[in-house]
Amino acid sequence: MQILTRSIPLFITAVAGIVMILSAFFPYTSDWGKFAGQFFNILAAFAFVLGGGNLLKLHLKKISDQRPGWAYSGVVLVCFIVTLFVGLLKIGAYPNPTYPSVHFGGETQGSGSMFWWFYEYAFKPLTSTMFAMLAFYVASAAFRAFRAKNFEAILLLGTAFVVLLGRTFAGVLATGWIPPDSAFSGLRLENLSVYVMQVFNTAGTRAIMIGIALGIASTSMKILLGIDRSFLGSGD
């Protein structure tokens, strides 16, 4: 069992990783990289199936255990199954006019199908409103959490003010009196926000970026060499 659950997976990881690295450096091996990439992409599509299956399993269990709120699990399952059904079978989708006799030949997400209807009138309003809600919470957080406790916090708040005002017409209203051609035009809020972004933000983000990249490169190396095996789960 150790071979199946440890040795072979580690071997697969190393080979797959080395293939990807080689394909970046040697044109001859680029085809290997292409195949590995294609296999990965197909697996990524299977991952959607796995995600759906997991959801099904989780909510079926919740219903069978009659846990609190199990009725909502029923709603999840019904929506999941109906979307899946109308999407996979392309219910109501218009066939491709070039091949009208093939039912499945039409566009999956084309407007007019039931699958499109689920997207347009359920998926779209729901997901976009969920994200829109964050505007309210960010306002509440601004009132409760942003405190000018020390110099660092003042810097953070000051920058936030410059960006918030400089990226709207408020900047023009507040500092529009500074002539655009004068020596102090850089102090106009809209120009100041550009300066802050291109100098201070770029410097800070670049350092974070280099740090993260070093971390990713070393973690990748550890994974390929079999030093980091955490992705294989416990027991090692």
Partner: peptide, 10 residues
């Protein structure tokens, strides 16, 4: 296409 950056790679 599924696969994120691997799609770009291919």
């Amino acid at each position: 296409k599924a696969g994120s950056e691997q799609v770009i790679k291919v």
